[in-house]
Simulated assay, not measured.
Amino acid sequence: MTNKKQMRTSTKRMLEDILRDYPKLPKYIKEREEELHHPTPDTDDNIGGGRALNKVSNPVERLVLTIDDDRRLNWLKQEQMAIDDCLDESGEITVEIINKLYFHNHNEATIRTLVNEGDVPVSYTKGYQLLNDFLFKLAKKLNIDVL
């Protein structure tokens, strides 16, 4: 799948940031779920006064609605699923490229260094093509406009 189209630089950088965060996504998801399980209570500015008559008092029901409706949590899960799907659909060399470029901390690797050091058995052109195809697939799965 060769993409002759160009991707906006800002879109490519955003997708690369999403990929760099991928190893931390399970931690981010767990932290967000914990935030939703243990929300900070609202301060009560009502001094004296009566009871709230229409207040929902079922904390389990409120928690389920909050977790299901939480945009940040849903986006994190969507990112994780999209990357998992793209990795599953990609060949071994593409997975190795993505792994070495984005999943290692403080990594300064480029396609050129991966090819020069023999980490991936393809040419520069083929390496860039595999990377770009992966980024286009990921953008499509995340419904991100690339142009």
Rank of each mutant, 00 (worst) to 15 (best):
E89R: 02
N107G: 15
E61Y: 08
E92Q: 12
E79G: 02
S90P: 12
R32P: 00
R20Y: 04
L73T: 06
N54A: 13
T9I: 15
V64G: 02
Q80K: 02
T66A: 05
E34W: 05
D17F: 09
V60F: 12
I47A: 14
R72M: 08
H37C: 11
D44M: 05
F103C: 10
I98R: 06
H104C: 10
E92P: 08
N54M: 13
K77D: 04
L76I: 10
S90N: 14
Q80A: 04
C86K: 04
N105P: 14
E34L: 12
N105A: 14
L87C: 04
Q78A: 07
L101K: 05
T66F: 00
P26N: 03
G50T: 07
R8T: 11
D45K: 12
K77P: 02
K30S: 13
E31T: 06
R13D: 10
E16S: 08
K24F: 03
S90C: 10
P26D: 07
K12N: 09
N99Y: 01
K30H: 14
N107S: 14
L15K: 02
T9D: 15
E92I: 04
E31Q: 15
D21L: 05
R51T: 15
K55N: 09
N46L: 11
I97D: 07
L65T: 10
E61D: 15
I67Y: 02
H106Q: 13
A82W: 03
N99I: 01
T9N: 15
Y22H: 09
I98S: 05
T66Y: 00
N54V: 10
K27G: 13
L15P: 06
R32G: 03
N107K: 09
Q80E: 06
I83H: 08
H104D: 08
K100N: 15
D42G: 06
P26I: 03
A52D: 15
K30Y: 11
E96V: 10
S57W: 08
D21V: 01
E33L: 02
L63N: 13
E79R: 02
S57K: 10
K100D: 14
D45Y: 15
I67A: 01
K100T: 09
D85Q: 08
V64H: 06
M81S: 09
H106L: 14
D88W: 03
D88R: 06
L76C: 09
K77S: 06
T43M: 11
K27P: 08
L15T: 07
K24Y: 12
L63G: 11
K30A: 12
D42Y: 12
L87S: 08
N99G: 12
E34Y: 11
T11W: 06
I67H: 01
K100L: 13
T66E: 09
L73Y: 05
E16N: 10
A82H: 08
L87M: 07
T94W: 03
R20V: 07
K30N: 05
E92H: 11
E89V: 05
L15G: 03
I97E: 10
R13C: 13
D17A: 11
K12L: 14
W75E: 08
D42W: 09
D69K: 00
P26L: 00
C86N: 02
I98L: 00
R20K: 04
L101W: 08
T40M: 07
E79F: 07
Q80M: 00
N74T: 13
E96K: 14
P39K: 00
D70A: 04
D70L: 03
I29K: 01
T40S: 04
H38T: 12
D85C: 11
N74A: 07
P59F: 05
E96S: 15
F103V: 03
R32L: 00
Y22A: 02
